[in-house]
Computed example of a mutant assay.
Amino acid sequence: MKILLVGEYSRLHNSLKEALITLGHDVFIIGTGDNFKKYDVDYSLYPSFCCNYWFIKKIKNLVYLITKTDLENLEKGIRFYFFLSKLKDYDVVQLINSNAIETYPVFSRFLLKKLFLQNKKIFLLVCGEETPIVEYLLKNKMRYSILSPLFESKKLKKKYRYTLKYIKKNYRKTFNFVKTKASGIITSDLDYKIPMQEMGFKTTFIPNPINTDRIALQPLNISHKIIIFLGINESSSIKKGIVFFEKALEIIQEKYPEKVEVIITKNIPYNKYIKLYDRSHILLDQIYGYDQGYNALEAMSKGKVVFTGAEREFIEHYNLNERVCINALPDVNSIVKELSFLIENPNEIIAIGKRARLFIEKEHDYIAIAKNYLNYWESFSYS
């Protein structure tokens, strides 16, 4: 098959592409590369004109100040438009999000309409923020969620503007347009499966694909200090509960000055990020999750002990009897307690790391996951 994957925010589409190519398919990705993360894409929508020249940046900022028009968003849409002639006759087109082009909603619908007309089957992947996800989380029915900080302080509303945009009329209209055109909707983990079901959507759950051939197990060797890694994306740090990790690390460094080394990074490209966390034994990922996101899964594949979402819903879904990662709660004392146990029992770090890798191989192997995608796509007839 000839397959087009639109958007890339985590390496999910890249891993899926790698598996599909191994299985003999032609696969292309179009997207921005997610700004500073610089993920690989075949057709780049990165707004280099607006971002790479200081004088254009000044003009862009002035235009936004006067008109509230973001020239970066316009450039992404214009770039997509000029790629349209190459984006035709695909058997499958999958959007990573209804806002996968990352331009203005009206422009996005115009472009998507053209894209859909010149291709066959359309699918929507829900693996992050999306209109029904945000609508459900705003009901505040879950034990906690990425919106928990907002419920505690309305002053944070400005920090959530990229999340809350999905419930605006124009973005909701775009989601509804994609929903009506899509043959099916896929969810990638329980953090999206549960809200979509609660909102009445029929979805198919296919776990994140992890390239276990590319990501080798790194047997943990604890000869001296235990290395703890925290990689911060400042644009999403509040939603991920990073402040709990930061406070816990202050306590841990004071408590175990001779036993731990802490590495903290901010807003660095994916390739540099990986090289830094490769040294670590423990990775602090996120707080407000019930299941693991892509970053956590890649680290688990390397045999790291990851503090992330691992709630009872996750344990029950995969029928686990032993911990493959640490359930990170929005509680500093809980995080300190878990870290202290691992620091004082380094053999447990090694044991959890081994189980983490085995879990990834069993539940997230990229070839097996790609076959699930293929079976799902092929279950729909051409329109």
Rank of each mutant, 00 (worst) to 15 (best):
L117T: 07
K169C: 05
S153L: 03
Q197T: 02
K157A: 05
E198C: 01
Y144N: 10
G184L: 03
E135K: 13
V178C: 08
I186W: 06
L137H: 09
L164G: 02
K193L: 11
Y136G: 03
K179Y: 14
K155I: 04
S145C: 07
I167F: 15
S183M: 08
N176F: 14
I167E: 11
N170T: 15
F201W: 06
K159A: 15
D189R: 08
T187I: 04
N140E: 14
F177L: 12
Y162G: 13
K179L: 14
K120V: 11
F123R: 06
K157H: 08
G184C: 03
K179S: 08
L190T: 01
K193A: 01
N170F: 06
Y166N: 00
C127P: 05
V106L: 15
N99F: 07
K159N: 14
M196K: 00
K169A: 13
L115I: 11
K155R: 08
I186H: 05
D191H: 00
Y162N: 15
L137S: 06
A182R: 00
P149I: 09
K120P: 05
S145I: 12
Y192K: 00
K121D: 04
N99H: 10
K173W: 13
G128Q: 04
L137P: 04
M199C: 03
T204D: 07
Q197M: 02
M196S: 02
T204A: 05
K154S: 12
K173F: 09
M199S: 08
E130L: 04
Y136L: 06
T187C: 11
P105Y: 04
R172C: 11
R109H: 02
K193E: 11
M142V: 13
L117V: 11
N170V: 10
T103P: 03
T187Y: 01
V106F: 15
C127K: 10
S183F: 08
K154V: 11
R161L: 12
S148W: 13
